[in-house]
């Protein structure tokens, strides 16, 4: 079942640069999909359009039946409540501890305090940081900080988890741990995961659905299990 669909999507920025050109692709519900490509291939633009940080210049983006490109600015928040986003730089609140960082996502959307606690504890347990509830980001390793960011992204039980180079700042061991965690979330919770990465080793080891971009075009759509050998 198609969960995400890009139909002839083109994105041209105001300075004239075309980041994505006539892109057609689809991602199934519950899929774990890597998006790979070199610098300037349009990976980040693609996912930014998914969470409506950017709007396509042409074409149509459908996410779970919702036409993302047609969404009014005032309604974007409704889309974002259905998805979680993780970044390379974690984007945690430095003056809040692990629990507060994760709870912040639910407080911001106005959930009741008594509903927040169990959800936060469940998410923190899932990422394996139960023992570090009261620790502050500065006292955590890079991998742990990324786990907090993942917990924050999944705490509202999103249908889609978008990860923009989540392992970019981590060593290979930690990177693999994070990838395994994301796979576990994908498997356990049925969350569709899209992960942008530069790391071909990870992609080849995990053998998942891979979308390769090159200079804004769809270079290749590798089905699950295919080996990626092209240098992008």
């Amino acid at each position: 079942m198609e969960f995400i669909k890009f139909n002839g999507v083109t994105k041209q920025y105001k300075n004239g640069v075309v980041a994505i050109y006539d892109l057609n692709l689809s991602i199934e519900k519950g899929d774990f999909c890597y998006i790979i490509g070199g610098s300037g291939s349009g990976k980040s633009t693609l996912i930014k359009m998914l969470y409506r940080e950017e709007k396509p210049t042409r074409g149509e983006i459908i996410l779970g039946g919702l036409k993302v490109n047609k969404l009014r600015n005032s309604s974007v928040y409704k889309l974002r409540r259905k998805l979680g986003v993780v970044f390379q730089d974690y984007r945690l609140l430095p003056k809040s501890n692990v629990y507060e960082n994760v709870a912040f996502a639910l407080e911001a959307i106005g959930l009741k305090k008594r509903d927040i606690r169990p959800k936060v504890l469940k998410a923190i347990e899932l990422v394996g940081l139960k023992s570090k509830l009261r620790d502050y980001p500065d006292n955590l390793s890079g991998g742990e900080q990324q786990r907090v960011a993942i917990a924050r992204a999944i705490v509202n039980e999103p249908k889609l988890l978008i990860c923009d180079e989540p392992t970019g700042n981590l060593d290979p061991v930690m990177s693999m741990e994070i990838v395994k965690l994301l796979e576990e979330i994908n498997k356990k919770e049925g969350t569709t995961v899209i992960m942008v990465t530069h790391d071909k080793t990870i992609v080849n080891k995990r053998k998942k659905h891979v979308i390769a971009l090159k200079e804004g075009h769809l270079f290749k759509d590798y089905k699950k299990g295919e080996y990626i050998d092209e240098i992008l």
Binding site: R81, F104, I109, N156
Partner: peptide, 16 residues
């Protein structure tokens, strides 16, 4: 700024 960007990402309404 960081707090605001996170709020936007997690789907806080403009009003909030």
């Amino acid at each position: 700024k960081r707090e605001i960007s996170i709020m936007r990402l997690v789907g806080a309404s403009n009003f909030a």
